[in-house]
C-alpha cells in the first residue's frame, strides 16, 4: 500500500485530508509543523508528500521542500496553498514541488493528482505504442485503432486520448486535462472539456460497445479497458 505524508498545521484540514486519502486506500501519516514534517520526510518510506505552503515552527513549506531536495530526497511533493497567484505556483514548483493545488479544493482533485504523482516512474525505454483493451495508439505515427479499426482523430483529440491512456485506470480531473492537453491552467475550467471528452467517446466507442471513458462523479474521467 502506498504511504503518504501530510504536512498541514490546521488540525481540521489535516484530519479531512487524511480521511480522504485513507478512504482512497492510502496509508497516511501526518505532521503539524515544519520541523516535524522535515524529520518524518527525511526518514523516508513515503511515496508522496502533501505539503502545506504555510507552516508554523519557523520552517515553512517551501523551506522544508528545498531542504528535502538539497539532501537528495526525491519523493514527489504536492504543495497546498491558499494563494493561487501564478508566481506563487511558479515559486512552489521551482522549490522542487511536483504539483500545486489551491485551497479550497475538491478531494477528488487531490487524490487524482496524487495518483499521477505516485505512478511508478521508470520505463526509460521509449514507448512506441499504448494499448488499453483493444484500443491501440501508435505514438510514432499518431494512429489510433480500436479492434484493428482505424479511428480518425483531430490532433487535440489524439492528445486527450493519449493522456487518458497513459493514466489508464486513474481518475483524471478536468483541471488536469486542461493543464496537460491544452497547457493552460485554471482551477475552475468550464464544462466545455466534457464536450471534448464526449466527442472523443463517440469516436473511439463503436456502435453498441461498452464506453471506455467513464465519467467520475464530481469532475473527473477514467479510461478503462472495456469488458
Amino acid at each position: 500500500m502506498a504511504r503518504v505524508l501530510v504536512v498541514e498545521d490546521d488540525a481540521q484540514t489535516a484530519a479531512e485530508i487524511v480521511g480522504a486519502l485513507v478512504d482512497h486506500g492510502l496509508e497516511v501519516d501526518s505532521a503539524a509543523t515544519g520541523p516535524d514534517g522535515l524529520l518524518r520526510a527525511a526518514a523516508g518510506g513515503y511515496d508522496a508528500i502533501v505539503l502545506d505552503r504555510m507552516l508554523p515552527g519557523g520552517l515553512d513549506g517551501l523551506g522544508l521542500l528545498s531542504t528535502l531536495r538539497a539532501v537528495g530526497v526525491e519523493v514527489p511533493v504536492l504543495i497546498l496553498s491558499a494563494l493561487s497567484a501564478v508566481d506563487e505556483r511558479v515559486r512552489g514548483l521551482r522549490a522542487g514541488g511536483d504539483d500545486y493545488l489551491t485551497k479550497p479544493f475538491d478531494f477528488l482533485e487531490l487524490t487524482a493528482r496524487l495518483d499521477v504523482l505516485m505512478r511508478p516512474r521508470g520505463a526509460l525505454s521509449p514507448e512506441t505504442a499504448l494499448r488499453v483493451g483493444n484500443l491501440e495508439v501508435d505514438l510514432l505515427t499518431h494512429t489510433v485503432r480500436r479492434g484493428g479499426q482505424l479511428i480518425d482523430l483531430l490532433p487535440r483529440e489524439y492528445r486527450l486520448l493519449e493522456y487518458l491512456m497513459r493514466h489508464e485506470g486513474q481518475v483524471v480531473t478536468r483541471t488536469m486535462l486542461f493543464e496537460e492537453v491544452w497547457h493552460y491552467r485554471y482551477d475552475e475550467p468550464t464544462n466545455v472539456i466534457d464536450v471534448h471528452v464526449s466527442k472523443l467517446r463517440r469516436k473511439i466507442d463503436p456502435e453498441g460497445a461498452a464506453p471506455m471513458i467513464q465519467t467520475v462523479r464530481g469532475s473527473g474521467y477514467v479510461l478503462n479497458a472495456a469488458d
Partner: peptide
C-alpha cells in the same frame, strides 16, 4: 466562492509579477 476569490485575487495587481 472560488470564482469570487479568484476575482479578488486577479484584481490584486501583485499577480503581474507572473
Amino acid at each position: 466562492f472560488t470564482a469570487l476569490l479568484r476575482i479578488s485575487e486577479v484584481e490584486d495587481s501583485v499577480r503581474r509579477a507572473g
